[in-house]
Amino acid sequence: MTTLIMIDQPPYGAWTGREALDMAFSLAAFDQSASLLFTGPGVNWLRQTQHAGGIEQKSVEKNLAAAPIFGMDAILADRAACIAYGLDEHSLIEGVTLVDADADLLTDYDHTAFAG
């Protein structure tokens, strides 16, 4: 049973994205196969050097760094959205795989859930 968690909301603007991340990590912690897909403004989660102290929040970059520890299958990012937001291999955090978020991708997963 494979699950894809899609995060299409920008970081820090609302809490829904973090809730989806917790959901994904819990799945992985219970040895369920789970992957994360960031699309649209959601790809901004994946930019390096996020200093969120000024808005009294923990950087989402640190949360994501825990993904391998939980045994997350993959962190995917939509190629077109990354280009739109000027994200490339120099500005993306490590461990992100670029994909085309299209119908084919969805067929690789039994379940797809969203953030909010």
Binding site: Q50, A52, G54, S59
Partner: peptide, 13 residues
């Protein structure tokens, strides 16, 4: 706004 720019790693942009 500086804190929001830095939180999202957009400082140099």
């Amino acid at each position: 706004l500086i804190p929001d720019v830095e939180a999202r790693g957009l400082g140099d942009l």
